[in-house]
Amino acid sequence: MVVNGKEKKIPSEISLNEFLSQEGYDTQKVAVEKNGCIVPKKSFATEMLSSSDKLEIVCFVGGG
């Protein structure tokens, strides 16, 4: 899989939610685009990842 432009090995059965937690992201503070489409927050737990996927993850920090 490619995550934010970098190759990343993933196990065969992993959901987006599991992947984000494993990578240390706070799932409340991220937005994720998979293969060019935004992944709705409510689908994070059911969205399964495969090695051919391309993910872009934006993690927001506070202040505004």
Binding site: A31, I38, K41, F60, V61
Partner: peptide, 26 residues
């Protein structure tokens, strides 16, 4: 200000066709 609110807005509005979001972080 709050990063969770930023994420909610971006997630929700980007599901709408043709919308562009200019967000801030840091």
């Amino acid at each position: 200000d709050d990063p969770a609110n930023k994420a909610v807005l971006v997630n929700t509005l980007l599901q709408e066709r043709g919308k562009k979001i200019i967000a801030a972080s840091g």
